[in-house]
Each structure stands twice: as structure tokens, then as C-alpha cells.
């Protein structure tokens, strides 16, 4: 029956035990872009079905967190805020930090949470963590909106001038850095979790600990003479959070060159993460 088959035949697809570490198949991910958008929509719509307040929760949560920080770190611990009104200081920190923690928590759970789908159909697995990063951008957008309202409120009623300038162009860059780092770390952890669930335990309190090692509730300048300051300097997220405040309020000890380190860090975790994810996605159904 196979008269027409010759050795030089072309196949559309070859399923093999191992693939090259770098065959990321981004072209295939692009082919599934509609799916990515639908996942974004699903995440967004399904989360607030059967809640009364719906998407309002995106607003309430950062406001309550800001008030809590204001009380504990501002009033009780009396930590300075770099000359920024404390509400704006905490709210800006919470906004960018929530984006990171939201992305990381969700992406690090990719394999385990979606084992049901992954076990039955094939689509490029990378679509899911990517969709999470995008759906969180929508959330970031809402929270950023509230932050803008707060800034305008302070400008109108408290005579705190809005510092609008070219440094605002930094914002998208900072969001991309946050997205890249959380995606990279998230897919590494999700890959590890398929075999060793220990990492899913680690991630919940790990993110909390990391927040205190990042200048979210205190300014970087506060640490200038402290012996433990090196921890915060080695944290690639420090420069991003600090940069976020610099872009909005033009204060703090931020320099443009400090973003080089988070940038390199992002490239490294993304490359390593993609390689590892790529290796694990092919057989994770056997171990998950």
C-alpha cells in the first residue's frame, strides 16, 4: 500500500521523546492567540460570577491594603515615605506589587491547576501562563486607575502637585520587567511543582516574605546605612518598585542604570524558565 512513500517524505509533525531545549515554538503560541485571549476573558469573567460586588473587588482590595499599611507602617512603625503623601506611597507600592504577586501566584500553579485540560488536549502550554500575565495587566489597569484618582485628589484638595513628565514613559517598561520576572519565576516553580508539591507550599509565604525584602512599605533611602541593606539591593524587584515611584512622584534614590540588573535577571529567568517548562510540559502528565 505504501508505494508512494519514499524516505524523503515530509511530515507535519514528529512526536519524539526529547526535543531541543530551545524549540519554544513561539510560532505555535501565536497561532493559539485567540485561545490566549479567551483564557484572559475567562479568568476575568469567571472569577466574579456569583459575587455581588463583581469587579469592584479589584478596587476594594488595594484600598483596604493601603489603609492597613498606612496604619501599621505609617502610624505605628512611623517609617518615612520619601516625602510622598503616605496614602499615595503605599498605594503605589501595592499597585505594582499586586501585579507581581498576582502573576507569580497564578503562573506558578499552571500545571497543577490545569492538569485536567492538559491531560486531554494539546495546545502550547505556554499559552496559559502568558494569558495569566495579560489578565493581570487588566487588573493592574484598574488599580492604576484608582491610584491616578488618588493622585488627582491629592493635587486638587491637598496641594500635592502632579509630577507629570517624561519619566512616565518608564511605566510600561517597568510593567514589562515585572511581567517578565514573574512569568519566568512562575513557570520555573510550576514546572518544579509537577513533581514536588513542596514548591506550592513555599510560594504562598515566599511571596509574602519577598514583599518585605522589597521596598513596598518603606523607601529604599530608608536603608542607606543599614547592615542588611544588601538583601534589598540584591532583590531585582527593588529597583522596579523604586522606579515605579520615581516615575510617578519623581522622588527617591532611583537611577536609570539600576534597571540594568532587573533586566538581565528577567532575561535569565525567562530563558531558563522557558527551557525547563519546555522540558517538563511534555511529560508532566505522568508525574503531576
Amino acid at each position: 500500500m505504501n508505494h508512494y512513500n519514499s524516505e524523503g517524505e515530509t511530515w507535519d509533525l514528529e512526536i519524539k521523546p526529547k526535543v531541543s531545549l530551545f524549540s519554544l515554538n513561539l510560532k505555535e503560541v501565536w497561532h493559539y492567540r485567540d485561545l490566549m485571549l479567551l483564557f484572559v476573558k475567562r479568568d476575568f469573567v469567571a472569577q466574579y460570577k456569583q459575587t455581588i460586588l463583581g469587579p469592584l473587588w479589584h478596587v476594594i482590595q488595594p484600598i483596604l491594603t493601603t489603609l492597613m499599611f498606612l496604619l501599621i507602617f505609617g502610624k505605628i512603625a512611623n517609617i518615612p515615605t520619601d516625602g510622598i503623601p503616605p496614602v499615595l506611597f503605599y498605594m503605589s507600592g501595592v499597585t505594582i506589587w499586586n501585579y507581581f504577586s498576582g502573576c507569580l501566584t497564578a503562573t506558578s500553579n499552571t500545571f497543577v491547576a490545569n492538569a485536567g485540560i492538559f491531560g486531554k488536549v494539546y495546545f502550547p502550554r505556554l499559552v496559559l501562563p502568558l494569558s495569566i500575565v495579560f489578565s493581570n495587566i487588566a487588573r493592574l489597569g484598574i488599580q492604576f486607575g484608582i491610584l491616578i484618582i488618588a493622585i488627582l485628589y491629592y493635587a486638587l484638595f491637598k496641594q500635592v502637585p502632579v509630577v507629570f513628565g517624561s519619566q512616565w514613559l518608564l511605566l510600561p517598561l517597568l510593567v514589562i520587567l515585572m511581567a517578565g520576572i514573574s512569568l519566568g519565576l512562575g513557570i520555573i516553580i510550576s514546572s518544579l511543582t509537577t513533581k514536588y508539591r513542596d514548591f506550592s507550599v513555599l510560594i504562598t509565604f515566599g511571596i509574602q516574605l519577598l514583599m518585605y525584602a522589597t521596598p513596598v512599605v518603606y523607601p529604599l533611602s530608608f536603608l542607606s546605612n543599614k547592615s542588611y541593606a544588601w538583601i534589598i539591593y540584591w532583590n531585582p524587584l527593588s529597583a522596579i518598585v523604586e522606579g515605579f515611584r520615581f516615575a510617578l512622584f519623581h522622588t527617591g534614590s532611583f537611577t536609570y542604570s539600576s534597571l540594568l540588573y532587573p533586566f538581565i535577571f528577567m532575561i535569565v529567568v525567562l530563558l531558563f524558565g522557558a527551557m525547563y517548562f519546555n522540558k517538563v510540559e511534555r511529560t508532566f502528565m505522568d508525574t503531576v
Binding site: 511530515w11 509533525l13 514528529e14 512526536i15 519524539k16 521523546p17 526529547k18 511534555r282 511529560t283 502528565m285
Partner: peptide, 11 residues
Amino acid sequence: TTAPTTGSIKI
């Protein structure tokens, strides 16, 4: 949904 241990499938 899972990869083979050895061998291949061409499609």
C-alpha cells in the same frame, strides 16, 4: 498530552 519514552510518531 504526554511524550513517548522512546521511538517516534510522524504525522
